[in-house]
């Protein structure tokens, strides 16, 4: 694997590059430019950088107003505040079919010891329940940049769940493209398929290697597009390996595991093991401690899968 890098920084650098030639692009943020690597955009394109202060309802409302004029606003916020505080405004952005890209930074448990107010582990469930909303959860820096390019071609609202503060290994080339409603089969395996999105995907790749050392042939399927979801790829994996494991840094009810389970019961029912955050609040500690606590590391996933298959 390539050296580890930061998805949020890659995303913001790519957005600035696009904005230099596309005058429709603007950023609307809630006093969070530094946290989300947007200081460069703010310095270079101040007229298209709107800081609404600490006010997420207004953040989203303003972005819908900008989109109405043909601009392409990117809403920058920690995903915990964006998706929870402004959920109704986001719903109405989708009802209006506004071309707004909601960028949910510091997703999952990345805020670590700040605790439950700052963990964003319900957002996939909320966002994928909204009609017209596209929900993307890229896994690596290049995947995140590809999701940005995909969002720019899309008509209607998009939510991108962005990995921040936790470096990830790169799995994709720089010219990688992100397929709307598509997926990437990262590894083939006959015994079980590990299905992931966002941060967990790279951990599943590593978990599959650990399992291989124990003689378990595990495939890995990356569902970067959570809504719409690649039902065909899920069905293929279900038929091919007969068992699915879904892992996500999200509560177990309603996230990717829910989406995959909904799909397989309609297409090819197989046992599904869901790994994620149980419906409870995390203990206090640094992010990596929390990921270990919930078994959302390569080792943790490999262990649970081995137990399940035994």
């Amino acid at each position: 694997m390539a050296p580890t890098t930061d998805c949020a920084a890659a995303f913001s650098a790519a957005l600035l590059e696009l904005a230099r030639t596309d005058e429709r692009i603007c950023i609307v943020n809630n006093d969070s430019a530094e946290t989300h690597s947007a200081l460069g955009f703010q310095a270079e394109l101040p007229d298209r950088f709107v800081d609404v202060g600490i006010a997420e309802q207004n953040l989203v409302g303003v972005s819908i107003g900008l989109a109405n004029a043909g601009l392409r606003p990117f809403v920058y916020s920690a995903s915990c505040f964006l998706t929870a505080r402004a959920l109704e405004q986001i719903k109405n952005a989708a009802y209006t079919n506004a071309n707004v890209v909601f960028c949910g930074f510091v997703s999952g448990l990345a805020y670590g010891a700040l605790g439950g107010t700052h963990h964003a582990v319900e957002d996939l469930a909320w966002m994928r329940s909204i009609p017209r909303m596209t929900v993307l959860a890229p896994a690596t820096p290049n995947d995140t940049v590809a999701a940005l390019r995909e969002a720019m071609t899309h008509d209607g609202p998009v939510y991108i769940r962005i990995v921040s503060k936790l470096d990830t290994p790169e799995l994709f080339p720089a010219d990688h493209t992100f397929a709307y409603g598509g997926s990437v089969q990262l590894r083939e395996g006959e015994d079980v398929t590990l299905v992931g999105t966002g941060l967990l995907t790279t951990r599943l790749v590593e978990a599959a290697e650990l399992l291989a050392a124990d003689g378990v042939r595990a495939g890995v399927l990356h569902l970067g597009s959570v809504q719409p979801i690649d039902a065909e790829a899920i069905g293929r994996a279900a038929r091919h390996s007969g068992r699915l494991v879904v892992a996500e840094d999200h509560v177990l009810n309603g996230g990717l595991g829910g989406a995959v389970a909904e799909t397989v019961v309609r297409t090819h029912p197989v046992p599904v093991l869901q790994l994620g955050v149980p419906n409870e609040y995390a203990p206090i500690g640094p992010a990596e401690f929390l990921y270990e606590h919930f078994g959302l590391t390569a080792q943790g996933v490999a262990k649970r899968v081995a137990q399940w298959l035994a």
Partner: peptide
């Protein structure tokens, strides 16, 4: 917005002014 001439889906109260601020900022941009 199903109806021509309506700019936004409002009706959940208190949403309109933020939309207006965005629209006014867009004119400036």
């Amino acid at each position: 917005t199903r109806v021509p001439g309506i700019e936004f889906n409002t009706g959940s109260l208190g949403h309109g002014l933020s939309l207006g601020v965005g629209a006014a900022l867009a004119a400036r941009v």
